[in-house]
């Protein structure tokens, strides 16, 4: 992909983000923060590439540490979001 295609994806995704986030109900703003946290850990992709590559030992260990940190976030973020969302209940009639 060249720079311009990447930039296009980025700009369009910003617009998608803008409209999607405004539709989030204020009652769910805390789960919104925890789930955005979990998904921003997709940065684990970069950490995996560094950890998997041969060539630089330092780079590999930095990558592995990155994988640990991002995994804490991924598992912790999705789990705590699920825990919160399970608490939201409607009135029993």
């Amino acid at each position: 992909m060249d720079f311009i295609s990447i930039l296009s994806i980025f700009v369009l995704a910003c617009f998608v983000g803008y409209y999607v986030v405004w539709s989030v109900t204020p009652a769910l703003h805390t789960p919104l923060m925890s789930v955005t946290n979990a998904i921003s850990s997709v940065i684990v992709v970069g950490a995996l590439i560094a950890a998997a590559a041969a060539g630089s030992a330092t780079s590999k260990w930095l990558g592995l540490l990155g994988v640990v940190l991002a995994s804490i976030n991924i598992f912790g973020g999705f789990a705590v979001t699920a825990r919160m969302l399970a608490m939201y209940k409607k009135r029993e009639r």
């Binding site: 805390t30 923060m33 925890s34 946290n37 921003s40 850990s41 940065i43 684990v44 970069g46 950490a47 590439i49 560094a50 998997a52 590559a53 041969a54 060539g55 630089s56 330092t58 780079s59 590999k60 930095l62 990558g63 540490l65 990155g66 940190l69 991002a70 804490i72 976030n73 912790g76 973020g77 705590v80 919160m84």
Partner: peptide, 29 residues
């Protein structure tokens, strides 16, 4: 929950720094 979210944010930030440093040291990969 506010503390936890702040702690999680810090991890994303640190992971980004680590990935950046790794990419700088081993750009070929």
């Amino acid at each position: 929950m506010p503390q936890l979210v702040a702690a999680f944010h810090s991890l994303v930030g640190m992971a980004a720094v680590l990935v950046g440093a790794a990419a700088f040291l081993n750009p070929g990969a």
